[in-house]
Simulated scan of single mutants.
Amino acid sequence: MAQASSQVLPATIGDSEFDRDTAVTLREAGVYDAELSAGWTIIHAVNGGYLLALLGRALGDALPHPDPFTVSAHYLTPSVPGPAVIRTQVVRAGRTLSTGQASLFQYDESGAEVERIRVLASYGDLDALTDDVRTTAKPPAIPPLSHCIGATDAPDGSRPPIPGSSAITDRLMLKLDPTTLGWAVGAPSGKGEMRAWFGLADGRDADPFSLLLTVDALPPTSFELGLKGWTPTVELTTHIRCRPAPGPLRVSITTRNLAGGFLEEDAEVWDTADRLVAQSRQLARAPRG
């Protein structure tokens, strides 16, 4: 009698932990209920890219166009695992682009709503874009995936020393370029650079909504500047440039200026077809360590 195969098939778009944990439920016109999963926390709070994907889902349902083109988010207060409500508004519905805004609220001890994040976004149809590409951008130089280092690749099975919860790392396929990993062994390079191969741990391929997670899922560049601790995002703007090809992504993040207790992070995300599929810039508060 033939034995059943024990091989686990990769998750698919729409049937993944990421999809389940970013699902929203329509309560009434423009209002959605959500549950922030503890699986996407890092240090003390829910990851900002995960939150962006969650609001992206709500706006994707509320707007007449399917795909996020540009999403600008202001993070007002730290989000925590648990129930949330997302309130959306259609600002303009055009022929090729529609624009909307959304806010995510949670509840304080008295039951009052507290706004966590506010987003303004424009949506379109990525499949309707032209094939005309004129660019000087080049994919980041990252060693082959087999030569990069993940959270469990240390000989003793230990993880890089990230204080607090790092539950999100269990849901990611994250292999860091060794030249940007000095912080993990107590020898940060002093350069504001972080590069990695990226995917979801269950094998789900990337799509426009998971790209909203990708731009904010690597360790912060402040680690390589010799600073450890929470690096809370103040504002994050993401541009989705095209629908990504299947396979792992390459992510490059750089910081050129840390001043006055704040730093910027510029991210580029490239797919297996050597296309720049997403870009972002964020302003973050620097750790005090």
Rank of each mutant, 00 (worst) to 15 (best):
E17G: 12
R27W: 03
G247R: 13
G48Y: 02
G124F: 05
W230T: 10
D108C: 09
L55P: 00
A196D: 03
K191M: 11
F223T: 09
R243G: 04
T254M: 14
D266G: 07
E109M: 06
G203K: 06
E193H: 09
A184Y: 00
L120I: 12
I240E: 02
R285E: 15
E265G: 10
N47L: 01
R288H: 13
I240H: 04
Q101D: 10
T179C: 06
T255R: 05
L97C: 05
E28V: 00
G157H: 11
S146C: 12
A273L: 11
L212Q: 04
T22S: 08
T237S: 13
L283E: 08
K175N: 12
H65A: 07
M194Q: 11
L283S: 15
P66R: 08
G157S: 13
G39W: 05
R288C: 09
R134F: 13
Q279C: 15
D61M: 11
V85M: 06
P140Q: 11
S103F: 02
L52T: 10
D170A: 14
D132L: 15
P81Q: 10
D216F: 04
Y32V: 01
F262S: 12
R159D: 15
V185T: 14
R288M: 14
T233P: 05
P143E: 12
D271L: 07
R243Y: 07
S98N: 06
L218V: 07
S158D: 11
L249Q: 10
P161C: 13
A151F: 14
Y107A: 01
R285D: 05
S98F: 04
P68C: 07
L36W: 02
A154W: 15
A73Y: 01
P248M: 11
D21K: 07
D67F: 04
G48F: 03
Q7A: 11
A196I: 00
Q282Y: 11
D156T: 12
R20I: 08
D21R: 04
P287V: 08
A259T: 13
L97M: 15
N257V: 12
L59W: 00
D61K: 09
T254F: 13
D131W: 06
A121N: 03
S122L: 05
T99G: 02
D266K: 15
S166P: 02
